[in-house]
C-alpha cells in the first residue's frame, strides 16, 4: 500500500473528532443545551464542566457538540449545492468552449463573484429574514461559481487531449464525453476543492451566525456562541476562546486533509514519487 502523507492523517483525525462529536450529540450530550441553570453560570472549565459554562449556566462542551452539527450540516449542504449547480455548468461551458453558452456562464460567474457570500446573505435576509437555511443558500450560491470555474478549467485542458478526439471519432456526443471521459478525470480536483469549500463554509457559517444572519436561537451555533461571549470577554474569556478553537481546529483539519488529498490524488505529484 502507498504511504499516505502525515497531513492527511492529522487532518482526517481532526475532522473525524468533530464529525463524531456532531453524531454523538444526536444521542447524548453531557448536559441539556436548552435549559437555563443560573446557579452554575459563568463557571470556568472544571471536572464537572470540561469547557466551563456560559452566562445562562449551559455546559459549553454540550453546546460545542450540538454546534458542530449546525456547522457541518450548513457547510455540507452548501458544498453539495455548489457542486450540484456548478459542476454541470462548468462541464457545459467547457463542452461549448469559446461559444455563446460558455460566454454567458462565465460572465454569470464573474457577476456572482462580485457578490461576496456575506452580501448575498444580507440580500436574502433582508427579504426572507435570517435563518440557517438562508445561510446555506447564501453560501451555496457563492460556492456555485467556484465549482463551475474549477470544473471548466480542468475540463478545458482535457478537451484538448487526443482521447477526447478519439471518443468524438467513435461518435460520442459532448454530454456523453463529459460524463465518461471528463468527469472521472477531474474528480480529484473536485474532491480537493470540495474540502476547501467545506472549510470555507464552516468559516462563513460562523461569521453569518456571529452577525445574526445565520442560525437563530435556540439552535446552538459556534458563531452565535462567540457573539454572546463578546460582551463577557473580560469576565469569562473561556466563553470566547473555546468555540473559536473549535472552529480553528475543524477548519485546520479540513484544510490539512485537502492538502493531503491533493498530494495523494494529483497525478503530477504522484508521478514524481
Amino acid at each position: 500500500m502507498k504511504r499516505l502523507p502525515l497531513t492527511l492523517w492529522i487532518g482526517a483525525a481532526l475532522s473525524a473528532v468533530f464529525a463524531l462529536a456532531a453524531l454523538v450529540s444526536f444521542l447524548w450530550t453531557p448536559y441539556a443545551v436548552d435549559g437555563m441553570m443560573i446557579a452554575s453560570r459563568l463557571q470556568a472549565p472544571s471536572a464537572a464542566h470540561w469547557f466551563g459554562t456560559d452566562h445562562f449556566g449551559r455546559d459549553i462542551l454540550s453546546m460545542i457538540m450540538v454546534g458542530a452539527r449546525t456547522s457541518i450540516a450548513v457547510a455540507v449542504i452548501a458544498v453539495g449545492m455548489g457542486m450540484a449547480l456548478g459542476v454541470p455548468l462548468g462541464l457545459l461551458a467547457a463542452a461549448n468552449r469559446g461559444g455563446l453558452v460558455d460566454e454567458i456562464i462565465m460572465r454569470g460567474n464573474d457577476l456572482i463573484f462580485a457578490f461576496p457570500a456575506l452580501v448575498i446573505a444580507i440580500l436574502i435576509t433582508a427579504v426572507f429574514g435570517p435563518s440557517a437555511v438562508n445561510a446555506i443558500i447564501a453560501i451555496g450560491i457563492f460556492n456555485t461559481p467556484v465549482f463551475a470555474r474549477v470544473t471548466r478549467g480542468g475540463a478545458l485542458s482535457l478537451w484538448t487531449l487526443d482521447y477526447i478526439r478519439a471518443a468524438e471519432v467513435a461518435g460520442k456526443g459532448p454530454a456523453r464525453i463529459s460524463v465518461e471521459h471528463i468527469l472521472p478525470n477531474i474528480a480529484n480536483l473536485l474532491i480537493v476543492q470540495g474540502t476547501i469549500q467545506f472549510s470555507l463554509g464552516i468559516l462563513a457559517e460562523a461569521a453569518l451566525s456571529y452577525v445574526g444572519l445565520g442560525a437563530q436561537p435556540p439552535t446552538p451555533s459556534w458563531g452565535r456562541m462567540l457573539a454572546e461571549a463578546q460582551t463577557m470577554i473580560s469576565i469569562a474569556p473561556h466563553m470566547a476562546i473555546i468555540p473559536g478553537l473549535a472552529i480553528v481546529l475543524t477548519v485546520l483539519g479540513l484544510n490539512l486533509m485537502g492538502d493531503g488529498l491533493r498530494d495523494v490524488l494529483d497525478p503530477r505529484v504522484r508521478r514524481a514519487r
Binding site: L161, D162, Y163, R165, A166, A167, V169, A170, G171, K172, E180, H181, P184, N185, P267
Partner: peptide, 27 residues
Amino acid sequence: QVVFQDPYGSFNPRHKVARLVAEPFHL
C-alpha cells in the same frame, strides 16, 4: 478511424485497455 501522434494523451488513464479499445463499438 484515427491514430494520433501523442501516445500519452491518446487514452483516458482511468479506463482499462479493454474499454479503451472497445470505444468505437459505440458506433
